[in-house]
Amino acid sequence: MGALSKIIGLAIAAAGAFLLWWGLTPEMEGLSLILFFLGIILMSIGSSILFSGKSRSEKEEEPEPPTVTELQCQNPNCDFKEIRDFEKGDYILKEMEQRCPKCEGTMMIEGIYIVRKEEEKPEF
């Protein structure tokens, strides 16, 4: 529907532009004003159809990215880190029963977060 309405809008606006141009030609002396106004009206209708619809900010929002849980080994000499999907019951600073596969140290939830899309950089 979106593409079709854009095509219709473009066609009407183009027809309006043609009438406007036609009205300006010397041979249309008698009808020039009528064609001129008709052309303007058609161009207005066409462009309003062409540019109607949801703006970028109103468009269907993308679904929120998945929430992830970041687990980290608590052994200061081990840098093992695991990122997995959030599970109900997870909370930050929760000590896990599972052990570090690298050094058998205790694992703790260091963060629960989502990575949202970066905002557009401001012009100024």
Binding site: E64, T67, G111, I112, Y113, I114, V115
Partner: peptide, 9 residues
């Protein structure tokens, strides 16, 4: 008010 953002963390 939404889920914690990585940039905030």
């Amino acid at each position: 008010v939404g889920v914690m953002d990585k940039r905030v963390l």
